[in-house]
Design a protein around this nucleic acid. Sequence first.
DNA 1: AAATATGTTAAAAATAAATTTAATAAAATA
DNA 2: TATTTTATTAAATTTATTTTTAACATATTT
Lengths: 187, 187
Amino acid sequence: MEENQKNSEELLEQAERAVINSIAETMDLYGVTPSIGRLYATLYFKHDPQTLDDMKDELGMSKPSMSTAVRKLQDIDIVKKVWKKGTRKDLFLAEKNFFHYFSQFFGDKWEREAKLNLTAINYAEEKLKEILEDEDAEEKVKQRAEQDLKQLAEYRSYCHWLEQLAQSIDSGEIFEFLPIEKTNPEE
Amino acid sequence: MEENQKNSEELLEQAERAVINSIAETMDLYGVTPSIGRLYATLYFKHDPQTLDDMKDELGMSKPSMSTAVRKLQDIDIVKKVWKKGTRKDLFLAEKNFFHYFSQFFGDKWEREAKLNLTAINYAEEKLKEILEDEDAEEKVKQRAEQDLKQLAEYRSYCHWLEQLAQSIDSGEIFEFLPIEKTNPEE
DNA sequence: AAATATGTTAAAAATAAATTTAATAAAATA
DNA sequence: TATTTTATTAAATTTATTTTTAACATATTT
């Protein structure tokens, strides 16, 4: 029985460890460093809020590292500070809903990308049209301006599409097109 | 007239420069360094294929840098090597369809993320179920195993959803839900 | 108010990534 | 086949990022 208890704990450890590793490995996609990814993955399996000291012991890193890492995770809204009576230390809990995270992250990124590029495209189109309207401009330059304008029109389409996508994720509309399915185990 | 020709060229330069800067700035989203992003942005406005020497002159960097940068861009399929009679130097042309790029990039990333995590989730679920079936396991451990299983079921849903999304982008189905619109200028 | 506990900022150190120069390899011309 | 041109790899350098140690600030307890 002693034996078995030990075994169960080991199994639990193995199970969690496997998922922690894969989360940490894939989290670079969301713009966090491996260490910060690993911190999040570790918190993902904590069902009670953790202190900075807990984290530093768990990961074998310094406390300032934990402090900055956890702030980064708060910035991207996947870790929250919680309050508990009687504790002086700050306590943190991981947001476990990946959809929330996904939406936030890509929504922001795509919106930023679209906005920035659309601004540049608008500016460029203005200049290029000036060239086309200038009777004294060299033919070669005019041709190139025209070619650029054609290209930029396509780019504009793409930016607008990105905005649409971001918006449909933000509003949740996308889940009408691609519903979230409660899936059954074993693939 | 001399004056005006000069002016048109300047306008063209300004127009292209603005878009090059914004592309370079947003391209980190697609996992390339600023330099490589800038190289792509520069190639985006070249209507004739460019040699490594062209690029190195344009960006003021070394040839080996251009060589590795252009290979990276080939890897992610947004630059193609082209062949032209009579030239000994390699020639490269930018893929200008951003949808193509978007699909490729996120499709791959999301598929990889989903696959890797699903593998870990499957492994973990197996172990956790073993714990639940073990009569000698401590109650505390069993409870935690159950909690983990619940969490992982949600995570599995997310991974499957990601796979769906990747697939619908890959197949183009997503464009039925979010059509690409030919947009008109000035926002 | 002094002592202690906690978290954060700043400087320093360590690590990793990007870039260049130099060396090598491969291909093309003479 | 020797020479030249072009591209790539390897080593060295530079630059940027991450992490730590040490100093500081803030709050809490005694």
